[in-house]
């Protein structure tokens, strides 16, 4: 099981928990499992089947360029972070 750290603004959906265990071989599967455990999370993380703009996923501390397709090792730590971007 991976540990998914829940961003503070979304903890209302996890009963206040800052981290939730979830299963899945990829970030996408992980989010599916999260949705089963904490309904409503998927809609806050995804838009049109992709990660929302301005949102990145980090697996074991490394921002992934693959997004939902990123592989998630067992026991991994997963974070959803505000994407670092410059002005236009």
């Amino acid at each position: 099981m991976a540990t998914v750290f829940i961003p503070a603004p979304l903890r209302e959906l996890t009963g206040g928990r800052a981290a939730v265990e979830a299963a899945g071989a990829t970030v996408g599967e992980l989010i599916d499992d999260l949705e089963r455990r904490c309904p409503g999370l998927r809609q806050r993380l995804l838009e049109g089947g992709r990660l929302r703009p301005n949102l990145s996923v980090a697996v074991d501390g490394e921002i992934s360029p693959l997004g939902l397709r990123e592989k998630v090792p067992p026991e991994a730590e997963v974070h959803f972070v505000t994407a670092i971007q410059g002005g236009v």
């Binding site: 961003p7 503070a8 603004p9 838009e47 301005n54 505000t82």
Partner: peptide
């Protein structure tokens, strides 16, 4: 204002608000 995907209820100059908490 966007707050992890949830848009605010009224127009604002704040494009985004986020929070880190541990």
């Amino acid at each position: 204002t966007k707050e992890f995907g949830a848009p605010g209820s009224r127009p604002s100059n704040v494009a985004e608000h986020f929070r880190h908490e541990m």
